[in-house]
Design a protein around this nucleic acid. Sequence first.
RNA 1: GGGCGCGUAGCUCAGUUGGUUAGAGCGCCUGCUUCACACGCAGGAGGUCACAGGUUCGAGUCCUGUCGCGCCCACCA
Length: 888
Amino acid sequence: MQLEKVYEPQRFEPHWAQWWIDAGIFHADVKSDAPVFSLVIPPPNVTGSLHIGHMLEHSLIDCTVRWHRMRGDNTLWLPGTDHAGISTEMMVVRQLASEGTSRNEIGREKFIERVWKWKEQYGGTIIRQMIRMGTSCDWSRERFTMDSGLSRAVREVFVRLWEKGLIYRGEYMVNWCPRCQTVLSDLEVKHEETAGHLWHIRYPVVGTDRYLVVATTRPETMLGDTAVAINPRDARYFELHGKTVMLPLMDREIPIILDELADPKFGTGAVKVTPAHDPNDFEAGKRHDLPKIKVIDENARMTAEAGRYAGLDRFEARKQVVADLEQRGLIEKIEDYTLSVGRCERTKDIVEPLISTQWFVKTKPLAEKAIEVVESGKIGFIPENWTKVYYEWMYNIRDWCISRQLWWGHRIPAWHCQDCSKINVAREEPRNCCQCGSARLVQDTDVLDTWFSSQLWPFSTLGWPDDTEDLRKFYPTSLLITGFDILFFWVARMIMAGMEFMGEVPFHQVYIHGLVRDAERQKMSKTKGNTIDPLVVTEKYGTDAVRLALLMGAAPGTDIVLSEERMESTRAFANKIWNAARLIFMNMERSGVQPWVPEDLQAYRPEGDEGHVRDEDRWIFSRLSEVAEFVNLAIGQFRYHEVAQELWHFFWHEFCDWYLEIKKAQLKPESGMTADWRNLLAAFEAALRLLHPVMPFLTEEIWQRLAPATQARPKSIALASYPKQSDAWKTSPGQLKIRYLQNIMSSARTLRTEMKLDPKVKLTGVLYSQRPELHDAAKYYEGIIQTGTNVTLDPSYDPAPQSGAVISWPEGDIELNVPQSNLAEQRKRLEKEREQLEKNIANSTRQLGDETFLSRAPAHVVESIKTKLVDYETQLAKVRKALNGSSS
RNA sequence: GGGCGCGUAGCUCAGUUGGUUAGAGCGCCUGCUUCACACGCAGGAGGUCACAGGUUCGAGUCCUGUCGCGCCCACCA
């Protein structure tokens, strides 16, 4: 069983991914046979876009799924809308690629064909979801005819809301994107501070020779003005009440109205009113029954109403209008002004407020229940501070414009009667108008906002509106893992929809992770093009390394900075695990040991020949127990980064650096299976299981080689149980001895390095200590100490009194025979140590002399300081002695 | 305008409910190609925890203020 010197992830990852699918092991629904493709493997560029941000979510979801799976918690269900689709894409492309079809040749048709094959094969819930979630996966419309499940749910929801009066249609001011040619919801408009101007324009007051000066940031809209507003309490303009002005350039007489819209403190205190092109003006227009003159059209060009400006682009028109006004001396002044400009999230085009007829959902009644379930704790956010953000939005929620002028999506199930204009809203296409019976019905051409269907995800994917087994079993789900960027778009609306249509929350916990940023802290996004290509980095560093890099940064509430350096270090860790396995397998061969793992993994106890269990075995098992306890707790609390760090430290710096180093010396060639071997293999196997959720591919590969095929055992490490803390492992007098060993060895090494001694030079040293266990340990591990430090500890050795080469720790100290010439360095360190110790002693003494401290601090704190003080003093005595010795 | 968050080692970040000498990775310095691993081993340097107050026996951690940075929401012409 030879392993290569360097771990090559590419060789194993696709193999295991395929294996897992075939075995149907990974389920979001861990009880059913539906595979969940939340493995982090390279995605395609073919059928959709994916960026590293999704991979974070995959990693979190997959890590959690595996952990729950291994613990035997079979009720977990993790929603993840787009991600299911994208993961499947990744799987498909990988598989097709392995069959010889290159990524570029795959294309949508082949892709769909394969997905359908899988659907037949597995009947997977996830695949069903992916197909139903067409819109958010950018699938083409014909998909919906293939599986009408979601379309049905959407129509059902629409009809129900309509019947309850929660959907209405009306003429409103909406955000229009001239490039997309569609209306946008408020959430899709991003406001940006932009340098602009404030033009002060003179409007001649009819019947007088004075002007009323209005200030505007958009002079071109004046062509559509139908009034000028002043504040009724504004004393400057009392005499203008009831008068009219002549709109320049258009020569239209328009009234001066009294309205709170005008803020006396802003600009000139007078506002031009353009009801057709400004939301505020629109409202004012309704109050004063003003005509709405549309001067800008859907292409952002001036309309015929704009007179001689008709046909001009809106910004061209602005220049022209300003020029014309200037020519007529009607510009009073132009100020620099910073204003907030709304732009389309996707195209960055400046959004034009237009009046149009759209469909809206009344959100207030829906929001009430959604607020209540969070207040009552039925839904919790992690980290908690997101609850505030959620409330903030929910309390101030505004009606939701759900219609879009696109063809890519679910069409609104409404039919307009060509004869009586009645709107027929229905689940199925009606033949006749419900009011006049006419057959001349035309379906509304608008489609629904993609989030309208997305909000139904938690139940529509389970078969709703039918009363299915899935629905009964899996609704509500336990946990949603997602990014905060879609908290309002998706999460909040899922809660509203869940309460409205299921009468129950859709999930109980929402874990909100940070965003992935690049090394420059830029948010990674498709549109910015600064994404790290997952294809490239997983190829380069390996999937496990990329995933671990993501997990290590995933502290709740913080963003994740992903860099190549990070992935380099996690790759090094992967390689470390690989090489630990390599060491073990090589030695197994030498010793003639066959693959073996304990029958009952959790119940295994370190054993020994002749009734003697080695200290290092006791120690490593007690550490395994502690680490398992920590990790189980931490994953349950979504502290993935601490999990990763703990496992890292344990495996590298305890298992490899100490345990394997010690074991190496214990294992004998041709020994056959011994207690030493059983302990080592059991410990290693447990460590692999602990690591599995964060390093799935690698641990699977090694585990499969470690566990004999013949033995009755789970088919995959992912089906084995996750290690728990164990009393059988924890009883450990060995722990102390190993600590002594570590102390002895690091002391000897430190001493050597500080004295700048050639590592090849053999040294003799003597160990001073009052504790017999320490001498026991030194004797017991003699060989290891010698190989590890090149120092022989000889109790009978009597160093020269002036040697001064001493390193001490609370339980003991070591003195080496070093040449006099190397002592200067040592003195420096001792001086420094003495200073530190004196400072510590002063501190501790002061604290212990403080009555208030003694009376108020808890006993264990006082006690620990007392013990520390004793240690410091012992130490100081040793250091002083060494210093005196070396100076004499 | 409202809300949220951040400021800890050269860099990127951890730091559970306040408790002793504040951690990790990368980078840096020194020494090692020792038969698992140079994607390695051993040792080491480096921090007034943004600043100023306060609460406390005790503050990186809690409170107030200041400065700097970021994000979200909002119809101020």
